[in-house]
Design a protein around this nucleic acid. Structure first.
Lengths: 377, 377
DNA sequence: TGCCTTTATTGAAACGATTCAATGATTCCA
DNA sequence: TGGAATCATTGAATCGTTTCAATAAAGGCA
């Protein structure tokens, strides 16, 4: 690489420029020499360590100025070697292509940033060996904690055993594990399921079709339970002929395809229904596509609800009524949980794992409507 | 946000036993002692260093077995301290909420994974100070290279000067910088612009409306140039009254809103057009929303094209004809470029920055159609 | 004045790896 | 048979911090 030392674009000759040549790092020793104190003192001052209360103010000032003047930047690795703190958190996604992930990531990133932690990113592509390999790499990099966004696939216990043995706090988002070794943050799926159905019921719908989630997903059962409980309490009858189920799949975006296909099958049955409650947003979009193609207008002839409130839900036509998961907040909370554990670990306190259930929120948009003029068959 | 803390999912009330087993690391010294060789030998064997060719096969075997038996994991930080290699790459997004980012990230992650590098993730939220702070953090963590996904906002030169001075190879995706210090990977916007218009032209459209991109975006000008060039060569007249422009904005998702609003304004003008070419997919979706709301059916009355081919494009109703950017490949290529530079740096060779223009691809879906029966006013 | 604190600073030992020069032990030719 | 070349292994320095025990000076108090 040609180094043009023409620092041209910098009219006022702002600092930034390092020494004269080479890219040799500015080390603490440099700061020590420049300021006339020892590296020990420099370390104490720059980290505001406990001993800093004995350091003369004048000394502090000189050291801080020297550090700034030289453009000193602490070396995170060297620092870790002594202090055992990497200021790093592992962030593992089961499958980043799931639109569910983006807001969660935003929440996590933002919370970490506040604490000056840096995330090491991993995407398991829904493959188990990849997941384990990444775990290995994260351990080599000595992440101080682990956050797993488990939107789709299953992890089993044995990987986490390894973690807790190493005393690395971990939290999962969108999944929870048996045992008390790993914290988790989830939406309250049962309440969410109830909300969606209650909304349709309030609009007057009685012939309602359902597309349940894949059996392998932890969300499927509680959502359905919420549905059943509400139906029971409201005296609503669920026609088994209108209940479909997505097949298991390793692709988080398979819901669209699945919703589309199942809805087509449903329409062929010629059974009447005025509303359809889909497992998640993508499924709902697939269903809408199928309905529209068959000439059934949404929401005029049939109302449709989703679940999650991914970005697409607001942009689709018609925009989707859905049950929102507070995804960003879930990310934030997961970070707070592991941060708390890290702190506890440093102070040699014990910490408890927590299992947090967040409240969902109904977001009413254009895909649902009063039953009055609805009818599809 | 109220959260129901369901901490009681712990029937046996286990206190999450900590400490007892210690989490003392297995170090290289342990492997050395167990195998009966010196740490030096262990290092040489485990890294397959040049000197390894002198090591007796039996020795290698014993060491490798000991390492496996003890569950030895090299300490990335300690390793860095001597070797200066962190096996880490900084990955900075201007704004991760842009759907553009997900496939790019997939490509980057995957390519890094192949090389056993680990990405440190940063999201600038389109804020300059955040960008700089992250840069600082990444330097503290001694990333070996930097990849910047510059989908939306502007970076200026002075931040990169710092980088190249430190000999850290960098590549941008979706943006390019003046000078020859930073590599870049972009789509060929001009060709893409031409493709979209050519497609509409081939379908017989002559009255075509345009929503141009915000001036601040580097993509806007070349796409428009492609449009103009094609129009000129095909003898197509562009009616200035049908050309709109998105305002500058710091929100990568503002296109939807903008496309919606501009299209409404366009419709109010009562000028005839049978097709609309939008700056990107979100803009196109916004436009479709406005058209549909006004009773103009897409594609029956008006064809619409997007640009990018984000995930949503395939799922919207109607699905969107668009110009695809090979996002995943762009990510992969950026990684390959910086990896090449890293290698060159290690071997003290010089390396060249590269400016790569990827070919876009026309993806024809349901939002465009033969002009025959089209007409909107 | 002498002894005990408190204040201010530092030397030196880690931390866990890598790497180079050095050391023995073999083998090879001439 | 002996010196060179090759093979096999290692001691010790080093990377940039942190941290603890040690030192030195100054202040307090009887």
């Amino acid at each position: 690489m040609d180094e043009l030392w023409q620092n041209d674009g910098n009219p006022r000759g702002l600092p930034l420029k390092r020494a004269s040549g080479k890219n040799q790092m500015v080390t603490m020793r440099d700061v020590a020499e420049d300021s006339g104190f020892s590296p020990a003192t420099v370390s104490i001052v720059l980290n505001n360590a406990p001993l800093a209360r004995y350091i003369a103010p004048a000394t502090k000032k000189r050291i801080e100025e020297a550090a700034k003047k030289l453009g000193y930047r602490p070396n995170a690795m060297a620092r870790f070697l002594r202090s055992k703190r990497s200021h790093t958190v592992g962030l593992v996604f089961f499958d980043i292509t799931d639109p569910f992930c983006t807001p969660v990531m935003r929440g996590i990133e933002n919370a970490l940033y506040q604490s000056s932690y840096v995330p090491i990113f991993a995407d398991a592509h829904n493959q188990r060996n990849r997941f384990e390999r990444y775990l290995e790499m994260l351990l080599e990099h000595h992440v101080e904690a682990l956050i797993v966004v488990a939107n789709w696939l299953v992890v089993d216990i044995h990987v986490l055993a390894d973690l807790s043995k190493r005393n690395i706090p971990a939290a999962t988002i969108g999944w929870e594990l048996p045992g008390d070794t790993v914290s988790s943050v989830m939406v309250d799926n049962e309440t969410g399921g109830r909300m969606a159905l209650e909304h349709l019921h309030q609009l007057g719908h009685r012939k309602i079709a359902f597309i349940r989630g894949p059996k392998m997903l932890i969300d499927s059962a509680p959502r359905w339970r919420g549905v059943q409980k509400f139906a029971h309490s409201a005296g609503l009858e669920i026609d088994p002929g209108l209940v479909l189920q997505l097949p298991d799949s390793f692709d988080p975006n398979s819901g669209f395809e699945g919703g589309h296909r199942l809805t087509e099958e449903l329409l062929q049955k010629k059974k009447k229904f005025t509303a359809l409650m889909a497992f998640d947003d993508l499924t709902a979009l697939g269903a809408i596509r199928a309905l529209t193609k068959a000439g059934v207008k949404v929401p005029e002839h049939c109302s449709v609800t989703g679940f999650d409130d991914v970005a697409m839900a607001a942009l689709s036509a018609p925009s989707l009524t859905t049950v929102r998961q507070p995804l960003e907040a879930m990310g934030t909370n997961a970070v707070n949980i592991v941060m708390e554990s890290i702190k506890a670990g440093l102070e040699k306190r014990e910490w408890n794992t927590v299992r947090q259930k967040m409240n969902p929120e109904l977001v009413i948009r254009d895909s649902t409507r009063d039953v009055a003029h609805s009818s599809a068959d």
